[in-house]
Simulated scan of single mutants.
Amino acid sequence: MSNDITLVLGATGKSGRRVAARLRLHGTQVRAASRSSATRFDWSDPGGWGPALQGVTAAYVVAPPVPGPVHEFVAQATAAGVRHLVLLSGRGADTWGDSTFGLDMRSAEDAVRGSALEWTVLRASNFNQNFTEDIFHAPLVAGELALPAGAVPDPFIDVEDVADAVAAVLAQPGRHAGRIHELTGSRALTFAEAVELISRASGLPISYTEVSPAEYATALVEEGWGVQDAHHVAEMFVLMQRGLMREPTDGIATVLGRAPRIFEDYVVRAAAAGAWRP
């Protein structure tokens, strides 16, 4: 086992906890950090980052929800002797233009790509697991997912593939230094098609309904979301309607040498586990 330590930020999140498990399995010393981990890390408290960075040689970074903090993180990481950074960002971030969506991820990319450290950026499409572990799950359990997604498909990616890619890049940082990998699933599906597959596999009457971005933002606020956060999520769908992120890429094959997991495999696993049962 190497004495090098890899810092995994967002270690209790969808990707972070999976990345940490993979690294540990392969003998990497992992320092798992989040607001609720033994090693505490809070993006709003730069003065408390020192213990998380001490002795670290590589770090996996998930962009915080606001622009700016990653610039300070990169400065502290450099001073602490960190050599490698792997950043999770969003698919096609440099094509988002004047959209207000993703300013946090674009700021994080600027910080990482502008650093003197060895870096890799992994830009991922919407995770399959958003249907089971995030914003789309509760509506599906209730029987209806209402979104402003339209007919433009999205090449959803399994977060297990993302975690595999992160672990592979951290294992061979030199091979991926200075590279941006766009990670997607093998084919694009509309949200209506995805919900139909979930309904069929689960045997539950789940439907998809089209709403406007304004209606969706209003619904999120009524569910308890902050106004700014609700409009941010709605803006993602406005951006998706431009069609700039609809085509699958070969990013997973480039990094892992294999095809991505297919959406149906994810749906079957989740349905068998009872993910959408009321």
Rank of each mutant, 00 (worst) to 15 (best):
V82M: 14
V61S: 01
V70I: 14
G97V: 03
H71Q: 15
E72R: 15
V66W: 00
P69Q: 10
V74C: 06
H71P: 12
G90C: 07
V82D: 04
D94R: 07
G97C: 02
Q76P: 11
V61W: 02
V74F: 01
T95A: 09
T78H: 13
V82R: 12
P69S: 12
F73V: 05
V70Y: 14
V70Q: 03
P65A: 13
A80H: 12
S89K: 08
P64I: 10
S89N: 11
H84L: 03
D94Y: 01
V86D: 07
R91M: 11
T78I: 04
A77I: 08
P65D: 14
A93C: 00
A79K: 15
S89I: 10
E72G: 15
P64R: 02
V70A: 14
P64N: 08
T95R: 13
G68Y: 03
P64G: 13
V70P: 10
L85R: 05
D98W: 00
P69C: 02
D94Q: 05
G68D: 05
A80I: 13
T95N: 06
V70F: 14
V61I: 14
R83G: 05
R91E: 08
G92V: 02
L88C: 01
V86H: 07
S89M: 12
G92K: 02
R91G: 11
R91I: 10
D98E: 11
V62Q: 07
L87H: 13
L85S: 09
P64D: 02
G81C: 12
A63V: 01
A75C: 07
P67T: 12
F73I: 06
T78K: 06
R91T: 02
L88I: 08
G90D: 08
G81S: 13
V86F: 10
E72Q: 15
P65K: 03
V62S: 09
R91D: 09
V66R: 08
Q76V: 08
A80V: 13
V70N: 12
A75R: 15
A75M: 09
D98H: 05
A75K: 14
V61M: 00
V62F: 06
W96Y: 10
G97N: 04
P67H: 03
G90A: 09
A80Q: 14
H71E: 15
L88K: 10
W96D: 03
V61H: 03
H84E: 13
D94S: 10
D94V: 00
G90N: 10
L85Y: 09
S89D: 09
G81K: 07
S89E: 11
G97W: 03
A77P: 12
P65E: 05
R91F: 13
P65Q: 05
T95P: 00
V66G: 01
A93N: 02
V86A: 07
Q76R: 14
A80Y: 07
H84A: 12
R83P: 09
A80R: 08
V62G: 04
G81H: 11
G97R: 07
E72L: 15
D94K: 01
E72C: 11
R91A: 11
